[in-house]
Each structure stands twice: as C-alpha cells, then as structure tokens.
Design a protein around this nucleic acid. Structure first.
Lengths: 202, 202, 202, 202
DNA sequence: AGATAAGCGAGACGGTACGTCTGGTCTTGTT
DNA sequence: AACAAGACCAGACGTACCGTCTCGCTTATCT
C-alpha cells in the first residue's frame, strides 16, 4: 500500500522494554547534564540499547524527549480531566495557576520542560508537536473553565477565551523562561487579580 | 585582581576589524542556517578570521550572537531613549506593543532573537546576559511610562510596575515563542485593552 | 587480560577496504609532500575515510607509515626467503648489496624509508617496530648467508655474524642517510671487497 | 647590493644576549621534551624572547638546533685539532672510536644529535648544513690520520680514505641510530680490528 | 518444526565540528 | 632598528557525536 523508500519499521514487533528504557534514560540524562549535552549515544548507552533502535523510532533527540515528557505528564495528570469549578472564578484560577507555578518550579519537570521549550522556539516542527501533545491538553482545561465563567456572566461576553487564557499564562511563562524574578504563589495570585480587574484606575 | 589561570588577552590590541566581521558573519549565518547549525568554524570562515580569534574573545557561540544582537539593537534604538507620552496611556501602549510586534515579526531580528531566547531558557548564564543587555533596556522604557501613568492616576497606585509590565509583554512573548496563533496588531491592541480594563464583567 | 581503559575495537569487523585505502594514501602522500607535511587529515581525505578510522587502528602517523611500508615490502619480497648461495661469498654479497643500493635509490621506497628512519632515530618505540618489522627480516638473510660462509671456512670462525653484517650494511646506510656521496654499485662492491679482506696492508 | 624582497636584518645590531638565550633554550628543551615536541614558541618563551627574533635569524627550528649544537661542539672540541698519532694505527683508531662511542652515549649530546640526524634524513638542506658544520670537522680528523697511515704503508695504497672512514664510522652510526644492540667500547674495538684485517679467513 | 525475517545490542564507518595548539606574519610599544 | 610581547590568519591536532551501515543474536510469525 505504502511502498515507502525506507520501509517503515513494523510497530507491532517493537520492544516495549527498549522504548521505556530509552524514555527513562532520556529524562534522567537531561536532568543530569542538560539538553545541550544530551546525546543520542549517551541515551543509548544508558538505556542499554543500540543507537539504531533510537533512530528507528524517533527522528531526533527532541522527539525522544517529547515522548518522554508526554509519558511523564500523562502519569501525573492521569485523572485531572477538568479544572475545579466552585463558582468562584478568581479562587479557582488562583488555585490552578498556583499548581502551574509549582509544576514549573519542580526540578523533575524543569529540565525537560525547558529543553522542549528551547527546541520549540527554534524548531517549528518540534514546536507544533510540543504544543499539541503537552501544552494544548493543559490549556484546554483553562479555556473550558473560562468559557463557563463567560456563560455565567463573570467574564465579559466579547472576550476571546484564547486571548484571556494567554493573559493569564503569558506572564507566568515569561517569568519562568527568563528567570527575572522568582515565580511564586503570590505572583500567580497577583496575575489573576490584575487580569480579572484590569490595571486602569477607575 | 587578575587571578586568571590563562592570562587574559590584551583588549587594547584587539582588532576592531575582526570583531565587526565576526559579529556580522554570526548574524548572517544564524539567519541563513539557524542556530543549531550555526558553527564557530563557519563564522570564522565567513568572517575571514582564525578560529582562535573567536575563542580568544568569546566563550561560546551564544556569547558571540549576544554581542552581535546587542550591536544590532544599539544601532536600531540609537536615539529612542523614551516611550511616547501623549497623555493617553492606552494609545501609547498600543503604539509600543505594535512596534514590538513588528520587531518580533521582522525576519532580520527573528532568527537571532529566537536563538538567544532558546539558549537562555536552557543556559542561565547566557540568560542573565541576555536579560541584562537586550531585554532590560527595552523593558525599562515600559516601566518608566507605566510609572508616570501611575503618578498621573491612570493606574491604580498599589500595582507593581514590574508585574504590570509582564502582563503586557507576557502574552505577546507567549504567542511569539509558541507560534500558536499569528502575532498581529489587533492582538497587541486587545492585550492592552484587556489588561488595562480587566476581564471581569462588571 | 584486557585491562585497556578504552575498550579496544573489534578487529574482526575491521574494514579491509579502508585499511588498504589508508595505507595506499599514506604512501602516496609521503611521496608527494614529505613526512613532515604528511598529516592524518590528508591521509583520511585522500583515502576517503573518517579520521577516527585511522585513530582507531593506529596510534600515530608513523605507525600508519610503518604498516604501509611493511605491506610494500611484503609484496616486493614475496618469494625471496633466502639470499643466493653460489659458493662464491664475495660475488653473492656484492649482488645483494647492489640490490640494497638499488632499493635505497628507488624513489618508490625512498620517501617512506627516510620518514621511518627519521622517526625511528627520535622515537624508540617506533624504532623497535621498524627494526622488527622491516629491518630484521632483511638482515636475517644476510646473517644466514654469513653463517653458512663461516661454516664453509670462508670467514674466520671467531667473528660475530651480527657484527660482520653491520660492517657491510653500516657504510651503505651511512652514505644513504647523509647523502655525502652518491650510493653506487661500485661503492657496494668496494665495501664488500674491503670488508672481506681488510684495510691493513700486509 | 642585494635588494632582497624582505630587507635582510642588520646583523651588526643583533642582540648577542638573545642569541645565546635562544640556543641554550633550544638545547635544554630538546633534551627535556624531544625534537618532535620542541616548538619555536616554547624556545621563545624559555629564552624570554619574542618569536619574531627567532624567525628573523633562523629559517626553521632545525637551523636553531644546528647552531646550538655547533656551539656546543665547538666548546667541547676547542683544542682537539688532530687525532693522536702514536704510530700504532689500530690503537689510535680504537682510542678515537671509543671516544666517539662515549659521545654518542652521552645524554648531553644524544637528544640534539638525534634530532639533527632525524631532520637531516628527511630534509636535504638541513642535511647539507649538518654534514658541513658538525660532521665534516670530525671526519676530517679521521681522514687525515688514515692518509698518514697510508703514507706510512700501514694501509693499502689503492684505498679511498673516504671509503675507509665510512667502514669505520658506518657500523657505529648504524648501531647508534637503530638501537639494535648496545654501543660499547668492545664493539668499537671489534670494528677497528675487523675493518683493518678483514673478515675473510686466510 | 523449521524456515524466514524483523527487531535488537553492538559498534565500525564516513563525516562534521569541537576547542586547543602551533606555525609563521604583523603590529605595537620600548630600549 | 632590533627587540619583547602577543594578536592575528591558518590549519592540523585528537575527541565527541552524528546518522548510516553491517554484523550475529534473539524472537515471532508463517509456512
């Protein structure tokens, strides 16, 4: 059917054992040595795997890390399919942004997250996958909660939920990326408050 | 005072000609081939310079690019020491954010800017220099304008200008980095309006 | 048994094709540019081979050249396992020394031979291999012929064959190395005659 | 008179102090690190001299070493303008060859001597200077003594003194260069005896 | 059950770039 | 003008990884 030039590997025969070992090794190594110094050879060696086994299934080290990070995220967010909705929008958003802050500050996520973000900035293809697999699932939850708040009349009806969402997460991301100032719960609270009520005086 | 193990080079004998050629070559090449494929060897070759002349004066390709980009920025922003202040805060901010949008969309800046951002995410040292040399000078202008608006009573007195600033630039940066949606003047306007007035309904 | 710090490469997987290409390239290049200007990079480039493939199998350019020259010698001296023995010692020795003279004068051997000799003078390790692989096999033939001559009573019984041998080859080598005077068949003959009969008058 | 393209330096202004320091440094370093690792930069640094001062007066590191070694030799052989002539040729030759053996075995001479020999093998230009400045003065003494022996009827009249000389020194050089066997007084004696009387039995 | 063939660990291969070292030239004061 | 100092262009060094390519070996299907 698809007589591709390089005959694609038969996924049904794939070694789950090797797949896991590679993803684990990638996460470990990116935490130990950083993304720049992360090499396919090192991943293969740590995973006890031939290099070809990596090249067979992934196009780049970024792709490996993306899969590894997605697996990590799926474990973490196993049940959380929805944001809390207590009726108090401000409280709910604070809760969630605080959670995001904690996640960004967690060393477990930090290295891999930064690696993927860095790669995404510079590599549109990786960026698309990153947004689709990692970011969107998280942001969708925000968007739903905001939409409900809009229906409930707590948010102006003319506002694009996408934009609203970016007003909330953008500042957090900004501070996380550039490390200008520490990323705290207080900051998250301030962002929620200001964003909801606006900067203007009267 | 000078406890350096490898005696530092004598900056007074430095070849200005080579310095310029290196910075220019770096900018050209990062635009042509992207940051990942940018190599010190290629920069040296393009600049007609020995590799050692680069290694003598810069610790990494990121540092070269940082200098190159800083030089670029200094040319561009030669006279602009202050943001416009027409008294109409919203209009002023829209004007400036639109300018920032144009800059981020300009192909001349894009490649180098992305490269430095990517490196900064992953490399705290480069990040610090990037923020200090490139980002701060720009943000300081925003901060001054916001402070004046605060004095004039257009912005609530209890707001931290730094945070206010991040509310404005964070969303732009977010969209630029992740390429989720196009970065337009309309978006800049919306960010200004919403940030000033808040999302909340009444 | 194998306490090597860097695990040794698997010789059974070695590419014969590359090995030959490297040896050939080394001989060509040493002839063209001389030993001093011979570089590993140039050998690799000429042979169409990665540098690492050379470094994997040889410790230095001298070692490459040694192998190359040994291969050359083995081709040339394929069948010659013994010196001629016509019964006339003087005639036999003249024949062989003339052959040696021709070899030393041949441009095909000259460059590589000189390179190895030069390296050997200065580098005991290379010297040992050079003597063992290249020189000994040749000298052994002389030694055998001289031993037989001794048994036949043509040479004094108290003479060390090793020393006798050096009396014959030493002068040739001397003149070849230092290029003081041309190395001719006549000279070879004179050395044989004088060495056999002595300088002393009566 | 000689409007050479690169105006030749004015030798009358040359710094004797620097010249000596360079020659001394060269000898020291060749003894410490060997010829291969001897670099112009290291000589300049050790001598407390600018690199250009070396390049101004010598064409290559071999030339420096040649001068250094010549200076060394001239000190050593200050008075010895002639070989001993006791009338007993064999005894005289043994004495001289033993002296040569001692010199070749002396660590002070060894490194530099080997370096120059190695360079000479591979570099005809250096070779010519080496022979002319270092070797000839020594060999001339042998040649004179042999000529006198010939006049006195102790050596056959039809023998070329040059060849005779090479019969004596060739074997020593051979053994020294290739380190096949130790270079001893006994060996020197044997070479003299055999060379004078010949290998042939009756 | 034996043959066939794919994925696998291993690692040699042709390459590219690294960051360092040295060669030989040029430049800038100093003596 | 020679000198000490050392920056400069050039390019080889030996190393580290890249992504591709065989090798046997182990499995898993398919005759």
């Amino acid at each position: 059917m698809t007589p591709s030039p390089k005959t694609a590997p038969d996924a049904s025969r794939r070694s789950e054992r090797s797949r896991r070992a590679i993803l684990d090794a990638a996460l470990e190594l990116v935490g130990e040595t950083g993304y720049q110094r992360l090499t396919i050879e090192a991943i293969a060696a740590r995973a006890g795997v031939g290099k070809q086994t990596i090249y067979r299934w992934w196009p780049s080290k970024a792709a490996v890390l993306l899969d590894a990070f997605a697996a990590l995220g799926e474990e973490a967010a196993a049940g959380e399919t929805e944001l809390p909705d207590t009726g108090d929008l401000e409280a709910d958003l604070k809760l969630v942004l605080r959670t995001t802050v904690d996640e960004l500050n967690s060393p477990r996520f930090d290295a891999a997250y930064r690696a993927l973000a860095a790669e995404s900035i510079v590599n549109p293809e990786v960026c698309a996958h990153f947004v689709e697999r990692i970011l969107e699932p998280q942001l969708r939850l925000y968007a739903q909660r905001l939409a409900r708040a809009q229906q409930a009349g707590h948010i102006r009806p003319d506002i694009d939920p996408r934009t609203a969402l970016e007003l909330l997460t953008g500042p957090l991301t900004h501070r996380w990326l550039l490390r200008t100032l520490p990323l705290t719960h207080e900051y998250a609270d301030a962002v929620v408050e200001l964003t909801l009520r606006g900067l203007a005086h009267g």
